[in-house]
Amino acid sequence: MVPAQVPAWAERLSAERQKRLWSQRDLAGHMVQAAPEHARAQFPKRDSIVRRIKDYERGAHKPDEPYRTLYCRVFGLSEEELFAETSTPSFVPELAGGFADAINLLREQWHLLVKRDNLLGPRHTLRGVHEQITLLEGFLESVRGSDRRAVLRLAAQYAESAAWLHEDTGELKEACQWTDQAMNWAYEAGDGLMVTWTMFRRSQQETAQRRPEEVIRLVLSSLRDADRLPAPMRAALLQQHAHGQALNGEERICQQLLDEAHTWAAVTDDGDARAGHGSFCTGAYLEIQRACCWMELGQAARAVSGYEAAMQHLSPVYQRDRGMTLAGLARAYAAIGEPEQAAAVGVDALKIARNSGSTRILTVVTSVDHSLQRYRRLPAVAELHDALTTAAC
């Protein structure tokens, strides 16, 4: 029997789904994807899961296992946040009147800025992120209690985005500062998943500085409660662990971790992070990272094959990632003694680096140019060198 008044937890389930612009059938698909691989074959058909979701959102009965855990994974929230009998700060809208509208607008703007970064890069995104952080910092000066926690959660998201954007523009000091700020805000808000995600960001920064022990330490700390993490976040952490093992020269462990990451990978993603942290971690992304690891392990021929195959399946929204993949492919071609192919692909990567403002891409392409110095008489190699010289002017 459906209760006369829909319980707070049922309204919350519906609100969290709608906040992500998912249909009930979309949510059913995410639940199946979030389930352990060995359990997926035992799941009922999609229509049956949709009927369950409808019952839950009407408050007909409360989810039991495994659906209770799957809800937490796909929404990236704890059981307490989702299934408390009374309204909680995570329920939308958290704030009253126009203030609530402003916060909801800033939430939506964050998704748009994430997509903008994936399409256009940090040059066209970083200013907007800092402008929104300034607004949120102003709100934090005057709000208290549950309103403050709601603002803190959103501010932590923006700060983590700032960390990533500064990292992509080669400003590692600023990236580390914003990662710390994101962690502080997330901790104050009680946002455990964001705290975990800031540790992921730190591990990436340690990867850039080639500190495998720190990479692995941070990732293992993040994976302590792996069963409570949303599936794509778990996949992202596993592939980051693989990078740490590649830096250590541990080929077998690295490849095993990437294989495991595939069992948790996101199926599809629109590039706006509506599916939560790590939603970029699709199968194509993981294979690009496998190719990066092959390069680190000194197996450039395997890296070439990996980059070429994975790039065919990379979503068009990830234009900056395409540039990074092209740069990696150029480096791999150079390593196997194919200077003209390396230079031609490097020119394509350089175009994306220029348009996006990604220093990471530019750094890799520059290293390719240096490695091809003895082939400068070849037209393609000369073109790459001239393009880089022009870019530096």
Rank of each mutant, 00 (worst) to 15 (best):
R234F: 05
R274H: 10
R51D: 11
M295W: 02
G283C: 06
A156R: 01
A41Q: 14
R224G: 08
T325C: 07
A303T: 00
L113W: 00
L21C: 07
E260W: 06
A28F: 03
L297K: 00
V365G: 04
Q255A: 09
G357D: 06
D270P: 08
A342T: 06
G97Q: 05
S221H: 11
A189T: 09
R202M: 12
K54P: 03
K54E: 14
P379R: 01
R153Y: 02
N118A: 13
R374N: 11
D227Y: 01
V364M: 06
G170I: 10
R51H: 10
L154Q: 03
L247T: 09
A4N: 07
K19P: 03
L388I: 15
V32K: 02
L372H: 01
I216M: 08
A34D: 14
G337F: 01
P66E: 04
A387D: 07
R149P: 08
L223F: 01
L378C: 05
I288R: 12
Q24A: 12
Q373D: 11
R144S: 14
L82V: 08
S203E: 11
P89R: 13
E251Q: 14
H243I: 11
S48D: 11
V143Q: 03
D117L: 10
R374G: 05
Q18S: 11
L136P: 07
V215L: 07
L172S: 13
Y67Q: 07
L172E: 12
S203N: 07
Q181I: 10
P3A: 08
P122H: 01
L247E: 15
N184I: 07
L297Y: 00
V267C: 06
L27E: 07
K19R: 15
A392W: 03
S371T: 12
R51S: 14
L384V: 05
D168V: 12
N118W: 02
A4C: 04
D147P: 04
R234D: 06
L165R: 04
A344R: 06
D386Q: 13
A208K: 13
R302Q: 13
L218G: 09
R374H: 12
S87Y: 04
R40K: 14
G138T: 10
A275I: 04
G244E: 11
R17Q: 05
A34N: 15
S305G: 14
Q209C: 08
R228N: 11
A156C: 09
Q299V: 08
G346Y: 00
G276N: 09
I253K: 03
D180Y: 01
L119A: 13
S221G: 09
Y375V: 03
V368G: 01
G323K: 00
G278S: 09
L106E: 05
L257Y: 03
L378H: 01
L152I: 09
Q299R: 12
N248T: 06
F91N: 12
V317D: 07
G244S: 10
S78Q: 06
A246R: 02
D386R: 12
I352N: 01
D147A: 15
G328F: 02
V151L: 05
A60R: 14
R354H: 09
V304M: 02
G323H: 00
R46Y: 04
R149L: 15
P36R: 09
L286N: 03
S222H: 04
R73S: 08
A261W: 01
G138E: 13
P379Y: 00
K45C: 08
